[in-house]
């Protein structure tokens, strides 16, 4: 079972690295935030997987929950910030 979980964790890691391409390249800033938010959600899952491998799920599940909360609040704050910035300056090209 541990071997299976390690393989799953490595697969998740590889796929998250693929998402990192979108974070690095993404044409607009919002693209990058969407990709980073997706990575954050997967980090939550990865933390629970690591906890299961180590046999300490009861501890790691709290980290995972905290990470999920922070990820949500971070994304909401980023989106609000860009809306606010758009409202402040009426130029077309300031975000894109």
């Amino acid at each position: 079972m541990n071997m299976f979980l390690i393989v799953i964790g490595l697969l998740l890691f590889v796929l998250m690295t693929a998402i990192l391409y979108r974070v690095a390249k993404g044409p607009t800033v919002i693209d990058r935030i969407v990709a980073a938010n997706m990575m954050g959600t997967k980090t939550t899952v990865l933390l629970v997987i690591i906890g299961t491998i180590f046999g300490r799920v009861d501890m790691f599940v709290d980290f995972a929950l905290t990470y999920a909360l922070l990820n949500f609040i971070g994304s909401i704050a980023a989106s609000r910030f860009f809306q606010w910035k758009r409202l402040k300056s009426h130029g077309e090209k300031d975000i894109i």
Binding site: I30, V48, V61, S75, A78, I95, I96
Partner: peptide, 28 residues
């Protein structure tokens, strides 16, 4: 606890998507 994380993600993930799409839409 894991099920609570499930519920949390099920509620917040579409909300985050909506907020980011809204930001992108209003950014033009």
């Amino acid at each position: 606890k894991i099920m609570m994380i499930c519920v949390f993600i099920f509620v917040t993930s579409p909300t985050t998507t909506h907020a980011l799409t809204d930001a992108g839409y209003s950014a033009g």
